[in-house]
């Protein structure tokens, strides 16, 4: 390999790791909100618990999601520093706009849309990988549906298994403890799927700069830095968001929380092993809706669900548009 490490490359790797840090900061609430709201752990302990499992995910799962992001979204010959930088800015820009509008969007989908937009700005529509984008697109719809189906199924199985138990308080106490395991499993899945997206971006950059061959695997320093960034992000700021999330979903009791987290974790394990990048936020949202639907459908906040659907529809085109614009500006400047 003849590639050279340039200051621009180091800067883009830094921006990618910042994206990962913010992801951990923001999504920590998903995995530990129920543990905090049911007072199994204090916010600080819960965040440390989630950060630990975010970090060790690289020991359990491979790097197939990273490969999908690096090689399955745009063709290899289009990848360059400007494409990846514009793609990252597109994703970050879209995340900031939707955060300001209060739309629950997925950073993962924004990243895919951003990469695609920048590649199209550089080399036209033929630069997109149809197969990879189709797989990602189908699982945007399927992952919350799988989470929801598993959430309902787990809840029904647990309710059936304990339907003769009289002491509701005893049962809730037991499920408070099992929530530690389900939250750990969800954090593991979150670390595996989301950290790998950043790994994929850095991997794509290294391939573009001929530092790593396209047929090679993700370097260990990339794996470790991505997991460190997401773990530190969780540790740094998650507990503030957890307080809000925890109060928003207090209607979930320990049993429901355990079922929702286990369902989402199972979905994330499956997609991570298969190399499919999915939204962890949408997966846990689907699982929570599933658990709520067992009780009654009116327990589900359909207004929020509708906003999630709009976010699905708009995220990829939104990030695509911003990245396309950023790349056009960069091309005009250089």
């Amino acid at each position: 390999m003849t590639g050279v490490v340039t200051p621009a490359l180091i800067f883009i790797v830094f921006v990618a790791l910042c994206f990962d840090f913010v992801n951990g900061f923001h999504d920590a609430a998903n995995s530990i909100a129920t543990v905090v709201s049911t007072r199994v752990l204090s916010p600080r302990l819960a965040v440390a618990w989630a950060a630990f499992f975010n970090f060790i995910a690289f020991l359990v799962f491979g790097t197939k999601v990273a490969s999908t992001i690096a090689k399955g979204v745009v063709t290899q010959n289009v990848l360059s520093e400007s494409v990846i930088f514009a793609g990252l800015l597109g994703a970050i820009g879209w995340d900031l706009i939707t955060w300001w509008l209060g739309l629950p969007t997925s950073s993962s989908h924004a990243l895919v849309g951003g990469m695609a937009g920048a590649a199209v700005a550089k080399a036209g529509w033929s630069s997109l990988q149809g197969e990879g984008l189709r797989k990602i697109g189908v699982f945007i719809v399927l992952s919350p549906l799988i989470g929801l189906a598993l959430g309902v199924s787990f809840m029904l199985v647990v309710m059936w298994a304990f339907h003769r138990t009289k002491g509701v308080a005893t049962l809730n106490r037991a499920f408070r403890r099992t929530q530690l395991l389900s939250a750990a499993a969800f954090s593991l899945g979150h670390g595996a799927n989301d950290a790998q997206k950043t790994m994929g971006v850095i991997f794509a950059l290294l391939i573009a700069q001929h530092i790593v061959p396209a047929s090679g695997s993700v370097p260990l320093w990339v794996v470790l830095s991505a997991h460190t960034a997401i773990g530190l992000g969780t540790l740094a700021g998650g507990w503030r968001i957890v307080k809000t999330m925890g109060t928003r979903i207090t209607h979930l009791q320990p049993m429901g929380g355990m079922c929702a987290e286990s369902a989402a974790a199972a979905t994330l394990f499956f997609t991570s092993v298969q190399g499919i990048p999915v939204s962890t936020t949408h997966t846990i949202a689907g699982a929570i809706v599933g658990v709520g639907a067992v009780r009654r459908l009116s327990a589900v906040r359909w207004g929020l669900a509708g906003r999630v659907v709009w976010a699905w529809i708009l995220t990829i085109p939104g990030a695509f548009g911003i990245a396309w614009l950023v790349h056009m500006v960069l091309r005009g400047v250089t």
């Binding site: 197969e131 189709r134 189908v138 399927l142 549906l145 799988i146």
Partner: peptide
């Protein structure tokens, strides 16, 4: 909706749509 994804999903993941 799950079965509708059969129209576009890759053959190796058809079982996921069918099972869901």
């Amino acid at each position: 909706v799950s079965w509708a994804t059969l129209l576009v999903i890759e053959p190796e993941f058809r079982w996921v749509s069918l099972a869901t």
